[in-house]
Design a protein around this nucleic acid. Structure first.
Lengths: 223, 223
DNA sequence: GGTCGAACTTGCAGTCGCTGCAAACTTTTA
DNA sequence: TAAAAGTTTGCAGCGACTGCAAGTTCGACC
């Protein structure tokens, strides 16, 4: 359905804008890059930039799986017996592997965000839009009323877990899905003390984070 | 230490700005109120507004217990045996009751935010600053390395739970602490299905949300 | 192939959030 | 009462973002 030259050009422009934005902000820092700079680098008018993105930040933080990428549908269509948490993890899997495939761009993104904390806030704000959708979907799946607190808590916690995994991703040198699973394991045990002194250790034990410059541990680069 | 006339006037101006902002935005909607409007209503120059708040949103979303209000210290100084979740709830209690006392302002705030969703995003972004502090404090209390994922997941989930409780507060007509406890009960059970079909129901069972216009249930107004 | 309409780009003009600076003013301190 | 320290204000300016209307490109249909 999207095979015309027009759509191809649109996709190219979009890509060019994203890349220009990431590159420039990486080089100079967020507040030393104007929208005009980005537009120039992508060879379009500044006005056009705003036809693609609602804000400067949006071009940088990316779409993640914020928009409807089918996660909601998959969650709803999971077999009835499957618990919500599990169903959610499964529903998210395709999105996560998509991110894995785009690993280089995402790592750059994360680096840029680390260096410009206001972008992290933008990301959080954006993902909260996705969480709203999740609230509705979870409520629907469980047949709970819209005002029931569970779906909201679920979405907030799940969103937080995913975000946490994302932030750790570049330095953890492990597949994103691993990190997400680990984050959820803490939720699964009711946020019990991870040192196992008193909690009920049902999840896998967390491997210690390795030093970013650690030369040992050759699991790197497998993802 | 803050008893001079100068500090009293500052406090007054701040209050005036907050009230003006809330009132005007409540009346007209966020994008039909400029900073100049707010400053005029509080009878100060627009430039002065920005001496008090870093952004227009900040005057509206409020300080919540974002800034250091002692929560961190209380969490750290809790008895060593106390589990983190419990210690956190205890540490937060004073802040929550402070909000209860300011109930009218907070309800207005929540109404204004509901009506102007971008403000919710601002609130989320702001509270994530508080979550960062929480990450550090939790890591310190548990003696975990900074890079360990548990504190981050904890902070994200806890922050989400608190936020959820806050959003429900105006319509739930129950004390805020109740709502926070309830939200945390879902976390405590590892986000198990709240219908009890398969989860391990350790927490109190959730009372159903009541209709906002429900004339029954006379627990209202006790808080 | 030519023509029409839809989609996309662009410039323009304007509003508003927000900042740095320096001058005026007010409160505190000595 | 004079100096010091803190606060308010105006001004000038940058840059994000928007609506509008004109121009351009592309696709579809005859």
């Amino acid at each position: 359905m999207k095979t015309g030259r027009r759509d191809r050009k649109k996709q190219q422009t979009r890509q060019a804008l994203i890349e220009a934005a990431l590159r420039l902000v990486d080089e100079r820092g967020l507040d030393h890059v104007t929208v005009e700079d980005i537009a120039d680098a992508a060879d379009v008018s500044p006005r056009t930039f705003f036809n693609y993105f609602a804000s400067k930040d949006e071009a940088i933080t990316g779409d993640l799986f914020v928009e409807d990428d089918g996660t909601g549908e998959r969650l709803l269509s999971a077999a009835p017996g499957v618990p919500v948490v599990e169903a959610f993890l499964n529903a998210m899997a395709p999105g996560l592997t998509a991110m894995q495939d785009d690993r280089d761009v995402w790592f750059l993104r994360m680096r840029v965000m680390e260096a410009n904390p206001s972008l992290i806030l933008s990301l959080i704000a954006r993902s909260s839009a996705a969480e709203n959708q999740l609230v509705r979907v979870v409520a629907k799946r469980l047949g709970l009323p819209q005002a029931h607190p569970y779906p909201a808590v679920f979405a907030a916690a799940a969103g937080g877990a995913v975000r946490t995994a994302m932030m750790r991703w570049p330095s953890a040198r492990r597949p994103l899905t691993d990190l997400v699973d680990e984050a959820f394991s803490y939720l699964a045990t009711g946020l019990a003390d991870p040192r196992g002194e008193q909690g009920s250790p049902g999840g896998q034990s967390p491997r210690d984070e390795q030093d970013p410059a650690d030369p040992i541990n050759e699991r790197r680069n497998e993802l």
